[in-house]
């Protein structure tokens, strides 16, 4: 993978730069859009789940509880819906000239990683406003983000690849993401469940990431080492698998796209 991509690293930078250019051309408030979606969702959640349904957040301030879930979720869902089209939308390029096509997906996801970083800074501000004391355990957010990034890239790559062959993926994605949202503890917590159930639920790496971001950022607790190891191996395995699937099918992209 490294050998394959190194030669094209400049193309990667230019693709990122191009995505940014296209995205903010003719917009009035530009980057602020990255903040508006998770912030407004958070307020809505506080109202619906916090005040109307009164779901217990285990003593964590409600805005923080929801926002920590929404930041990774927003990254995941927007990356996925943007990735699915990335091959089909570049049909003109793919059928004319060779380049490592996965860069189309990687560069799109990088844009959302930038959004993620911006919202994460806002999250850090909220944490300070609520006077949650800093602890070294909070630094676990970095490896958790890397897990999230790897997982998102794998899913995006699989779906975008299959979408070249079966456009059903595009049609199914909105519905799939909605299901996935409820399967991820964004507005609830699985913290009180017994460990047996947790391990099954951790098969959804998003569940793992959200639950553990709450642990390290809001509850001043560390991460369970062996759980992290298993999750990392699982996500890495998925990444390698999706990359191999992509390489295998990429050869005939230009024939079918």
């Amino acid at each position: 993978m490294y050998k394959r991509l190194y030669k094209y690293k400049d193309l990667f930078y230019i693709l990122i730069w191009r995505e940014l250019l296209i995205r903010y051309k003719q917009t009035a408030i530009g980057v602020l859009w990255a903040l508006i979606q998770p912030l407004s969702m958070m307020l809505l959640f506080v109202l619906v789940f916090g005040i109307i349904l009164n779901i217990d957040t285990g003593g964590i301030p409600k805005p923080l509880f929801y926002f920590v879930g929404l930041v990774p979720w927003t990254f995941f869902s927007s990356s996925i819906s943007a990735s699915i089209d990335s091959f089909v939308a570049h049909r003109n390029l793919i059928t004319k000239i060779y380049f490592p096509r996965e860069l189309l997906i990687f560069s799109r996801i990088m844009i959302f990683l930038a959004d993620f970083t911006i919202t994460f800074i806002l999250l850090a501000l909220l944490i300070m406003i609520y006077r949650i004391p800093f602890s070294m355990d909070m630094l676990w957010a970095v490896p958790l983000t890397i897990l999230l990034l790897l997982f998102t890239t794998s899913v995006g790559m699989i779906l975008a690849t299959i979408n070249v062959y079966y456009r059903d993926v595009r049609l199914a994605s909105a519905f799939l993401l909605r299901l996935w949202f409820f399967a991820t503890p964004v507005f609830y917590s699985i913290d009180t469940l017994p460990i047996k159930f947790k391990l099954i639920l951790f098969l959804n790496p998003l569940t793992y990431v959200v639950e553990n971001l709450r642990r390290v950022l809001l509850e001043n607790r560390g991460i369970v080492g062996w759980q992290f190891m298993i999750e990392t191996v699982f996500v890495l395995f998925l990444f390698i698998l999706s990359y191999r699937l992509f390489i295998r099918l990429e050869r005939s992209f230009a024939d079918v796209i």
Partner: peptide, 25 residues
């Protein structure tokens, strides 16, 4: 020219196409 992005200007498309052709920045 089929690979050009319609919303980008000439210079931006030169960078884009050049990089696809394997040129460095």
């Amino acid at each position: 020219g089929a690979g050009f992005h319609p919303d980008l200007n000439g210079i931006e498309n030169i960078y884009m196409n050049g990089a696809i052709l394997g040129m460095t920045i």
